[in-house]
Amino acid sequence: MQRRGRVFLTSLLVAALVAPVVLDRDGLPLSTYPMYSRARGESVSLVTANGLTAETDRIRLGLSVIGASDDPLVVAGELRAAVRAGRADARCAEIAERVDADREIVSVEVVTERHDVVERTLGGESLIERTVHATCGVGSR
């Protein structure tokens, strides 16, 4: 009887794990982990903020400057939400306030950049397209 019980419970567990795949449905507590099982596109769009020098050189800003957090998912989500809601100008001003006064940055831009995934992975020139949503000055510079 104990062996039958173990076989039954094991079969039930296996069926529960396979059910989301068979039913093509995803949800808690069982998941097909679609973020890892779907094919990726050839390009990716990233919403970010850059600092610009007087010579218009772009400087990548760190997470703590862009979003006052060290969690990249939180920072990216907040910036993406601000752009979608039409608050890119306000978000740009907040970022500009956090820029270190010792840096050569004279303005900040909030942008969406589309990159070639393979080139970005290989460290090559991957930028396909850049859309500027907002530009704002830093301090009194």
Rank of each mutant, 00 (worst) to 15 (best):
S107M: 05
A76Y: 06
A134W: 04
D89L: 05
V74M: 00
A85N: 11
P20H: 12
R80D: 14
L73C: 11
R40M: 09
E125A: 13
L12N: 12
V111A: 07
R60H: 07
R25P: 08
L127S: 09
D26P: 08
E97M: 03
A82S: 13
P34L: 12
R80P: 03
E129Y: 06
V22D: 13
S37W: 09
G86L: 06
D116R: 10
C136I: 02
A54Y: 06
D57N: 13
L61S: 04
R40S: 10
R58M: 11
P20D: 10
P34S: 13
R120D: 06
G124R: 14
N50C: 00
R38K: 14
V65A: 09
S69Q: 03
V111N: 09
R114L: 04
G67L: 01
E119W: 02
V108G: 08
T112N: 08
A68T: 02
E125L: 11
T56A: 13
A19N: 07
G77A: 02
A16Q: 13
A93N: 07
V47E: 00
L122G: 04
V7Y: 13
R40V: 09
Q2D: 12
D70F: 05
T53F: 09
I59S: 11
G5Y: 08
S107R: 09
A85D: 14
L73Y: 15
I128S: 05
V21R: 09
R87A: 11
G77C: 02
